[in-house]
Amino acid sequence: MSTSRIQAENYWKANLRLLLKLLTVWFVVSFGAGILFVDALNQFSFFGFKLGFWFAQQGAIYTFVVLIFVYVYKMNTLDRQFGVDEE
């Protein structure tokens, strides 16, 4: 196998690991906090709303937007590490 092919495979594996980590966070926040643990979280209040309700309605969306920025930052770092950045 050529060095560039190994490098490309390592880059793809690192990309998938990052993606799986971020999707896991989003799943835990959206499905876990918004559906599975809603009764436990509803015991707490956040800006006057029950916390479980807030996660189901707003928290998952905010988390998704933050994860987009985290993904962009981490991918730029990964691109530089593997020498495939655009700069």
Rank of each mutant, 00 (worst) to 15 (best):
S2I: 10
F31S: 06
F37T: 04
D39M: 10
F82W: 06
S2A: 10
Y62C: 04
G48R: 07
T77L: 15
S30R: 08
M1L: 14
V28T: 11
Y73P: 02
L51V: 02
F46V: 02
L67E: 05
D79N: 12
F37Y: 14
V72H: 03
Y11I: 07
I68K: 01
F82L: 03
S2N: 09
L51S: 04
L20W: 15
Y71E: 07
R80K: 12
T77Q: 15
K50M: 07
L67P: 02
F69Q: 09
V70Y: 06
Y71I: 03
V65W: 01
R17S: 11
F53K: 09
S45H: 07
L41D: 06
W12V: 12
G83I: 08
D39S: 06
K13M: 15
E86R: 10
Q57D: 08
F82Y: 08
S4N: 02
F55K: 08
W26N: 12
L23S: 04
D85S: 13
Q58L: 14
I6W: 13
V65S: 04
W26Y: 11
F64W: 14
F82M: 01
N42F: 03
Q58M: 15
G34K: 05
L16H: 03
S45W: 11
V84S: 04
V38N: 09
W54T: 01
S45A: 11
E9C: 12
F37W: 10
L20D: 02
V65F: 06
W26H: 09
K74T: 04
K13G: 02
K21P: 00
K74V: 07
E86S: 12
F31C: 03
Q7N: 07
I35N: 15
G59T: 02
I6N: 03
V84F: 08
F31A: 05
L18R: 07
Q43H: 04
V84Q: 10
G32I: 09
G52C: 07
I61H: 00
Q7V: 04
F55I: 10
W12Y: 12
E9R: 13
L36W: 09
A60Q: 12
K21A: 15
D79M: 08
N10G: 09
L36Q: 01
V29G: 13
G48T: 06
L16D: 13
E87G: 00
L16K: 12
A56K: 12
L23M: 08
F64Y: 11
N42H: 04
M75R: 11
T24M: 11
Y73I: 07
Y62R: 03
G59W: 00
T77V: 14
F53D: 15
S30Q: 10
S30Y: 03
S4F: 03
R17V: 13
Y62G: 04
W26F: 12
L78E: 09
L41S: 13
V66T: 06
L16R: 14
F82E: 01
V38K: 15
